[in-house]
Design a binder for these strands. Structure first.
Length: 118
RNA sequence: AGAGUAGGACAAAUGGCCGCUGCCCGGCACUCAUAAAAUUGAGUCCCGGGGGGAGGAAAGUCCGGGCUCCAUAGGACAGGGUGCUGGGUAACGCCCAGUCCUGGCGACAGGAAGGAAAGUGCCACAGAAAACAAACCGCCCGGCACUCAGCUCCGUUUUCGAAACCAGCAAUCGAGGAUAAAGCCUUUUUGAAGAAAUUGUUCUGAUUUAUGCUGCGUGCUUCUUUUUGUGCUGGGUGCCGGGUAAGGGUGAAAAGGUGAGGUAAGAGCUCACCAGUCCUACCGGUGACGGUAGGAGCUAGGCAAACCCCACCCGGAGCAAGACCAAAUAGGGGAGCGUUUGAGGGCAGUCCACCCGAGUUCCCGGGUAGGUCGCUUGACCCUGGUGGUAACAUCAGGGCUAGAUGAAUGGCCAUUGUCCGGGGAACGUUUUUUCGUACCCCGGAAACAGAACCCGGCUUAUGGCCUGCUCUAACA
């Protein structure tokens, strides 16, 4: 059973990291999220969250970010090792609660075969 | 009970599991410094424990300040802001207490509330006219043209006819001018009478029927000619000129209101009362202002959120302010050694040989990435006392209450409480339907909104709760 903690080493914190992932990574779309996956060569998984102002006011944006982090924290095994994963909220993401978001993200991460990615 | 009005406090609660946090404590490992070593100190990562962890608006960024850097002798202009009075404050465009005006039956609320007799300007549409007033309809006066009615005179048998101009003369007006004419315009003076008064001058009124007479002229009156008559009074229509501002109508607003006098008709033209403006005096108030008395002049529209005038206030940029530490690379300055007398490198313990060879070593400061500080003890909060109507000030005691930076303060579940909808119901009301309600079951909802240097305000968004007061209705 992996830890469900979320320390700083598992986060993307610098603007440079986000720009690199955006440039080198592969992009996938779901109904409410844009997901970018990029190899980082560190042997660990790092999560970045991006929510633009289009999503809503600051209260809604904060809640969306917390939802995504909570999903990562509780479902680490779904994520590929050694990759940077950026999850960006799209229009309408503010309407989701945790269970709807989990359903949507499960649908993405469980069906993808990340071994194919080089 | 309903409607309204002013204010206050709160921002569902409890528990379980899993999380975030740069603060504190403890521990493993590593790095650096010190040292003979143990140790000690600092830092990084991870683990465990503990404590704290969003708001009344954190929002909009609209005012005002603190703080920081820059600029700055003083003054004036420009630009911006404020605008009833007194007080509060670090300051304010904020707050408190009042004055006046406006709205409301009232509790109460609102006011960008200096100056429009300093000047310039504007007042849409409608309307005649929107401000040195004007004149569409109306009312009044005069002239011209056309026309009608009545009365009377005269001529004529009756019928009928009142139906006109022209020419000349006279009279009138202080003078001149315009005109068809005047009560219009300009200018000057006393020419006739009376009254007041020393004079100057002022007022009133008359002359005065205001047009008349003559015709040897034409026309009409009669079939024609002669003769005669060719007047008076009142009205209508049209045009022209003037007077007027009562009335109509337009407008947000039309140069006070009512009544009487006055007049051709009218008018603050005159008078009385009322309203309003200004001035003076006294009384009350720190003051805005209020009250009383007297006077003036007879009326002065609105807009200053149009320019403007007056009084007062204002330097600029903002925590991405600003201060400090500081890698790599490039470049700057200084010093040492060195360019055939060879620094340094190939070269790894030293020396030699050989090769390459013009730079190389150290220090200094600027400065980028990055980091640290600024960064939360403050015009602070709570309780009590004192002063003050209050805003607020002050004293005493107690307290520490977020400091993040791809940005923490959360997620899931359960229970309880609140509200809404549906269903069932003992009870009350009613003839019944119905309505209200303690309670039970099911389903759903829970607002506005996230600190970013810190305060004081304002504005906007928003959920239910409590209290005072006002009005209405009912009961007693």
């Amino acid at each position: 059973m992996p830890s469900s903690s979320f320390p700083k080493t598992e986060r993307l914190l610098k603007r440079k990291d986000f720009v690199n992932a955006n440039r080198a990574g592969k992009k996938f779309f779901t109904e409410h999220f844009l997901i970018i996956v990029s190899r980082n060569g560190l042997g660990i998984t790092r999560l970045g969250v991006a929510v633009s102002k289009k999503t809503g006011n600051s209260v809604i944006r904060n809640r969306v970010k917390r939802l995504i982090r909570e999903y990562y924290r509780l479902n680490k095994t779904h994520f590929p090792r050694g990759y940077d994963v950026v999850i960006s909220a799209r229009k309408g993401a503010g309407e989701l609660n945790y269970w709807k978001a989990k359903e949507e993200l499960d649908g993405f991460f469980l069906e993808k075969d990340f071994g194919v990615l080089s």
